[in-house]
């Protein structure tokens, strides 16, 4: 996983509630056995017409948002399925940070696992940042995870909260499996305890 420390980039405004994972990446694109290559299918049903051509109105088909690395939406971003293909598609397109008034839990979790920073800010702030994002190519936002601030084009800083454990993993680009495996002895001890207290726990085998 790539580290996330600081990002200065174009932000794409998507003033929609409930941007669900079926919109982010429709199910027909989940047949891949890889993590990469999903960027071209990001928001496929909204981004392309039935003839496969780009819909000119869709935000990611317009300049400068084709190069967006930040996505801003309204409430409940990522609701729906657990598909990690949603953050994979965002990442493959180039999105490294998502900003919304609220997130669905699994999507929120999946973002962190892939080096995407989800930032929760009040709805009015998100709307203000969307107005900033509409100012054009020079109106970049700066996201600083070290200082935990979003910096507006006019220099105003907006503080945000982030889980300290997850912040650390993002800043260091750490694989949390490696972290957990360091607690291998504790897991083994737990398993022995469970064998004692729940001897009825069946093993699965055919």
């Amino acid at each position: 996983m790539d580290k996330f420390t600081e990002l200065t980039a174009v932000a794409a405004p998507m003033p929609e509630e409930n941007v669900d994972t079926d919109q982010i990446i429709p199910a027909r694109f989940l047949k891949t056995i890889k993590r990469t290559g999903l960027g071209e299918h990001l928001f496929a049903n909204l981004r392309y017409g039935a003839d496969g051509r780009e819909k000119p109105d869709f935000v990611l088909n317009r300049e400068p948002y084709r190069h967006a690395e930040i996505l801003i939406t309204l409430d409940n971003l990522g609701c729906g399925s657990s598909r990690e293909h949603a953050p994979w598609a965002l990442l493959d397109f180039g999105i490294r940070c998502v900003i919304a008034p609220s997130f669905a839990d699994i999507f929120h979790n999946n973002c962190f696992k892939n080096g995407i920073l989800p930032i929760q800010l009040p709805r009015e702030t998100c709307e203000m940042l969307m107005d900033d994002a509409r100012l054009g190519a020079n109106a970049q936002l700066r996201v600083d995870l070290v200082q935990q601030v979003v910096v507006r084009p006019d220099g105003q800083e907006i503080a945000f909260e982030v889980d300290p454990f997850r912040r650390e993993l993002l800043l260091e680009g750490l694989d949390d499996i490696g972290q957990t495996l360091q607690h291998g002895d504790a897991i083994t001890t737990f398993e022995h305890g469970r064998d004692e207290t729940k001897p009825w726990m069946p093993a699965l085998a055919f």
């Binding site: 993590r35 399925s81 657990s82 598909r83 990690e84 953050p87 699994i106 979790n109 999946n110 696992k113 892939n114 499996i177």
Partner: peptide
């Protein structure tokens, strides 16, 4: 439900 990183 969990994502694929958590599956791993």
């Amino acid at each position: 439900g969990i994502g694929t990183s958590e599956v791993e």
